[in-house]
Structure formats: C-alpha cells, structure tokens
Amino acid sequence: MTQEIELNIPVRVDYVQLVRAVVGSLAATNPGLSAARISDLRLVVSEALTNAIRAQEKNSVAERLTILCKLTDSAIEVKVMDKAKGFEIDMVPDLPPTESPERLEHERGLGLTIMREMSDGLEIESSSEGTVVHMTINSQSGKNS
C-alpha cells in the first residue's frame, strides 16, 4: 500500500491547521500508526511548516509552499518545501539553560528540538534556493507507540 498526496498552500498561518488535519487523516488510514504517533506527526509537520512560513515571510517570498506526503505500510514520510533563502543548521544557536533568567528572552528555537525528538527520521537540506525538511514517522515503531 502506498498513498501519496501533494499540497500547495499559500504562505498563510491559517493554513497550518488545515495541513495538520489532512496529514493526520492520511496517517490514520494506517492502523500501524497509533494515535500518539499521529499526534507526534501533526506536531512535527506544524513545526516544519511554521519555520517555512516564517522564512518566506522574512524574505518576502510569496510562492506557495509544497507539502508531500507518502504513506506506506511501514511509515509516513512528509516533506515540507519552501522557497526562502535557506539557513545553516549548524548556525542555529543553543538556548540558554532553563535555570538562567535569560531563558525567558527566547520565545523561539524549540522547533528543531521537537522535530528531532518526535520524529523517527529528520533530514534538512537547505540552500539559497530554499529548504526541504524531510520527516519520517515509522509505523509500529518504539517511540510512544
């Protein structure tokens, strides 16, 4: 069984909820993906899409965002693609420790942590042409299932 869908959405925050719903509904057709794992999937997709929207807004890029989903018996893979100017993942700064008062100055910077921890696979390819975030959630994997 393989099902694939492609979504092309405007650079608008109100579409994030819709994408979460569509991806979650697709994943729910695989009985090997538990409700907890589908929650993880919705979260990592939301993080990737939020970053993509912020990046295109920052660079004033109006082109639509593309989301590719591929569901198989063994996993669901989601790619979120933007056309912003990219970033260097090694340059993303670490957050201050939680005991530091400075920690409260940082409202952002948690998305990568969430994507790394909640997914079974995370690959990020970024260049001046844009960024592709490729996330995998395995069916019946050990994480939270």
Partner: peptide, 19 residues
C-alpha cells in the same frame, strides 16, 4: 487541542511579561 513551539513561545513571553 494542539500546541507547538509557536504556542510555547507565547506562553514563555507571557511569563516574562508578568514577572
């Protein structure tokens, strides 16, 4: 029904503001 890092950021900002 859902929260992500953008929502967490708003809560962190709220804590900073009241403190």
């Amino acid at each position: 029904t859902f929260i992500d890092s953008a929502g967490l950021g708003a809560i962190i900002g709220g804590l900073r503001r009241v403190r």
